[in-house]
C-alpha cells in the first residue's frame, strides 16, 4: 500500500457530454458525498493529477485536447470513463459528429456506467481507479 491510494488527485475533462455527468462529478466534491474524505482533490491541472475523469464522448475537435491532457499527466496515471457517453458514445453514438467512447483515443482503465452516472458510482469508479494506479506504480517500480 503506497501513498497513491491515500491521495488520488483528479483531473476532470468534459468531452462532449450533456453536463449531466459533469455536475455529478462536481457533486462528489460537495458536502453530501465529500470525496475529500479519501484524499481526493479536484486539481483542474493535468500536471498535478493522477486520475483522469472523462465525461462525454469523443468528437473530431476534442481528440487532440484529450490526448494532450493525458500526455501532460505524469506517470503513473489512470483514466476513468464516466457515464455511458464516455464508455461507448451512449445515446449520442448515432449522432453524426460523435466518434464513440473515450477508449478510441486513450487507454481507459475503469468504465463507470450510467446516464447520468450517479455520484456513488463515480466514487466507486475512482476507488477502482486507485487500485489500477497502485498496480501501475508497482509495474513502474519493478
Amino acid at each position: 500500500m503506497s501513498m497513491f491510494s491515500r491521495s488520488p488527485w483528479i483531473l476532470h475533462y468534459d468531452g462532449s457530454s450533456c453536463n449531466g455527468c459533469d455536475i455529478e462529478v462536481l457533486a462528489c466534491l460537495t458536502p453530501l458525498y465529500d470525496v475529500e474524505r479519501f484524499g481526493v482533490v479536484n486539481t483542474g491541472n493535468p500536471k498535478h493529477a493522477d486520475i483522469f475523469l472523462v465525461t462525454g464522448s469523443v468528437n473530431e475537435r476534442n481528440i487532440d485536447i484529450i490526448q494532450n491532457l493525458y500526455g501532460q499527466m505524469p506517470d503513473p496515471k489512470v483514466v476513468v470513463a464516466v457515464g455511458a457517453c464516455a464508455c461507448s458514445g451512449g445515446i449520442f453514438a448515432r449522432a453524426y459528429n460523435i466518434q464513440g467512447g473515450i477508449d478510441k483515443v486513450i487507454p481507459v482503465d475503469v468504465y463507470v456506467p450510467g446516464c447520468a452516472a450517479r455520484p456513488e458510482s463515480i466514487i466507486d469508479g475512482v476507488v477502482q481507479g486507485i487500485a489500477a494506479l497502485e498496480e501501475k506504480r508497482k509495474k513502474r517500480a519493478s
Binding site: 473530431e60 453524426y96 459528429n97
Partner: peptide, 17 residues
C-alpha cells in the same frame, strides 16, 4: 463548430447520409 464532415446539414449531406 469545425465539424469533422464539412457542411453536415446541407441537402446533399443529408441525402448522402
Amino acid at each position: 463548430y469545425k465539424t469533422a464532415k464539412k457542411i453536415p446539414f446541407s441537402p446533399s449531406a443529408i441525402r448522402a447520409r
